[in-house]
Every structure is written in structure tokens, then in C-alpha cells.
């Protein structure tokens, strides 16, 4: 499924770019992160728990930055594996200056496979929407913290 959107951050573009490209900061925006490891500036892995079903769905997730054009564009490939679920996702964002603020256009192509995908179809969209909202809100907070620092 494809999701996309736009968000405005009240901070300069350089600040937003810096937050988005700092693995340790990005990890804090991800929902349900239980641990994360940075391997280099393009690769990192994490263990996450997504709220789906009793006890949540645990996945081990690996991320790779596949493309970037500082300070305006980056693209990532994300793979996740859990019990009964495999996730493959490609996401990218585009930053442009909007006065003192920054406009971010983002998109993600999410593929979910396995019994969880078969049975969870009707709850998938609401959960994806919920996760996206969570990420964007956390991102906003990270950006504000960085801007005021």
C-alpha cells in the first residue's frame, strides 16, 4: 500500500535535514523501539514492537539509506521480520524551504506479507495511519528540540 503526505516544520531546513539523517535521533521517532544499533551512516537495525494483537507484533527491522541529495532528498529501504509477518518498505522525503519553516513531502510504499497481512487487512490501514502520525509527531518534537538547542 502507498501512503504519502506533507508536513511543515517550524525550523530551518538544515536543522530538519540534520535530525532526519541522524540515526540516533531517527530511532527515537520510530514507534515501539526496544533497541537499536547503528552500523554506519547508511545502515542500522532495530528491534521494535508494533501494537497489533495481544502483546504486540515484534519485528527485527533493518534500514538502509539508498539515496540522498543533501539537504533536500533522501530515500530508505526498510525490511522487517516477525512471527507471521514480513514487511518491506521503501520511503523517501523531499525538503523545501518555506520562509523560516521547512516543507517536507514524504511517501512510503509498504508491503506486508504473511498470515498477519492476510488476516489483518481491514485493520492495516488504520494501524499504518496511526504509526505514521506517531512518527511525524515524534519527528516534530525532535526538530523543535534541535532548533531550540
Amino acid at each position: 500500500m502507498k501512503v504519502e503526505g506533507e508536513r511543515e516544520f517550524k525550523a530551518p531546513r538544515a536543522t530538519v535535514w540534520q535530525v532526519l539523517n541522524d540515526p540516533s535521533q531517527m530511532a527515537k521517532t520510530m514507534p515501539g523501539v526496544e533497541s537499536f544499533d547503528v552500523h554506519d551512516d547508511r545502515h542500522w537495525t532495530a528491534n521494535v514492537k508494533i501494537p497489533l494483537g495481544l502483546g504486540g507484533l515484534r519485528m527485527s527491522v533493518s534500514m538502509e539509506k539508498t539515496d540522498e541529495r543533501e539537504p533536500e532528498f533522501a530515500k530508505m529501504a526498510i525490511k522487517g521480520n516477525g512471527v507471521g509477518a514480513v514487511m518491506n518498505m521503501e520511503t523517501s522525503f523531499h525538503l523545501s524551504e518555506a520562509g523560516d519553516a521547512t516543507q517536507m513531502k514524504w511517501q512510503a510504499d509498504v508491503h506486508l506479507l504473511g498470515p498477519v497481512a492476510s488476516m489483518g487487512q481491514r485493520v492495516l490501514q488504520p494501524i499504518v495511519n496511526q504509526q505514521v502520525t506517531h512518527v511525524l509527531n515524534s519527528l516534530d518534537k525532535q526538530v523543535q528540540d534541535a532548533a531550540s538547542a
Binding site: 508491503h111 506486508l112 506479507l113 504473511g114 498470515p115 497481512a117 492476510s118 488476516m119 487487512q121
Partner: peptide, 14 residues
């Protein structure tokens, strides 16, 4: 089936 090839009625629940 969805575009990824997941069967959407995999048991009597659906």
C-alpha cells in the same frame, strides 16, 4: 488476492 499475493480470506474468520 491483493497485489502482493496475500490471500485475503485465509480461514473461516473471513
Amino acid at each position: 488476492y491483493d497485489a502482493d499475493g496475500n490471500l485475503l480470506t485465509p480461514n473461516f474468520y473471513d
